[in-house]
Amino acid sequence: MNKQERNEAQWAKWTDQVLTQLPAHSAPATLAPRIRAAVARLQVLPWHRRPWLQWPTTFKCLSLAVVGATSTAVSYWVLPHAPVVPSASAVVPGYEPAVTIVGAFSTLSHGLFQALAHSGTGTMAVVLGTIGVFWCMSLGLGTACWRLSIREN
């Protein structure tokens, strides 16, 4: 150990000795009442009024299962079975926008289904690769915008 390293080690020890003598800061008088109020708010709120991350684990798992099952059922119903264009007589008055959205989704998914069914492995790889590249570009652009906004703030 040379002189400089020995000096630095001694200063480290000195710093440690003086810093560990410092007493804890006193918490502000407002802290405990703030915590009590926040805990009281948590106790009053039923689980379904809290953010999803604070739900009980059982309900979180159940909600994920319900969302997954619903998405699967809707996809199964829309993809191979639904008509590509809903017939005019089948539309209930007042529900035209919803029917239009379902029709568009159905047409798109039907086309996608047909394309998937008749595409070769190479085409699929190109399509998936392109989607991946665009996804990465979007992610990169979003991250750049977010960092710029943080820096500007």
């Binding site: 804890a24 800061h25 006193s26 918490a27 502000p28 802290l31 405990a32 915590i35």
Partner: peptide, 8 residues
């Protein structure tokens, strides 16, 4: 008991 430690 712990508020000073946490705040420090």
């Amino acid at each position: 008991n712990y508020q000073d430690m946490v705040y420090s």
